[in-house]
Amino acid sequence: MSDLIKKVTALLNDKTINAFIGYEKGSADRIRATFIRNEDQAQKLILNASCTQNLAGYLLKHEVKKLGKLGILANVAALRSIMQLASEFQIKDGEVYVLFANADGSLTEFTDFKSIEAFLETTDTGIKSEEQEMIAKLEAMTVNERWLFWNKEFEKCIKCYACRAACPMCYCHRCTTDVNQPQWIPVASHELGNLDYHLMRAMHLAGRCVNCGECATACPMDIPLNLLTYQLISPIKATFGATAGMKADAVYALSTYKPDDKENFII
């Protein structure tokens, strides 16, 4: 029996938590999220190098929330998601029990936000080097080239909204896309509809994206959606000194004004 199963069993038995979000074996060689409610189910839990999904998005799902007090197996992206969600008042301190899987397979417990913040401060939270190369390539393009690149990518979009469902920050009960009085974002999967949707999503994630990459992983059409929101991370850091998902009491960079804010984006 692995340490993880032992730990989760203990947590469930002493009622520290009512349910635990972890990974289990899916069909074929896939890994999928699982929601453990008792000792028997806990036996399904696995933890290996393929367990990379950011599970934090499930914390706010209605069906998961009603299971009671939640525990979660978190990676760095999930920790940052929890911090960002906390800063947006979606998770309260102490509400979620967090188990962090270290690289060597050992587990670290986090029961409060302070310890997560302290941990993140000394952890590499940056964008992966291969992703950085892609961004550098994008940024080296002319505006027109970039426009063509994205339009070509968006052509593939089938508006399945998997990106939205996978994103830990897309927790609105009713997405702007689904608002039809008035219908600002066309629902149809045509050129304008796709562009509008992805631009809207990028803007809604500006300053909030925790670079977990779930959107791109979820996309069945292999659109590198993560690059769209990642590209907004460094300008916001450079302009306002803010990085999303590092502090539970952070204020949103784009909703606050400081007298020393740079205004070099105003043309």
Binding site: E88, F89, R174, S255
Partner: peptide, 10 residues
Amino acid sequence: QCVGCFLCQS
């Protein structure tokens, strides 16, 4: 429709 993120508040 409000999800209580309170970005409006700041």
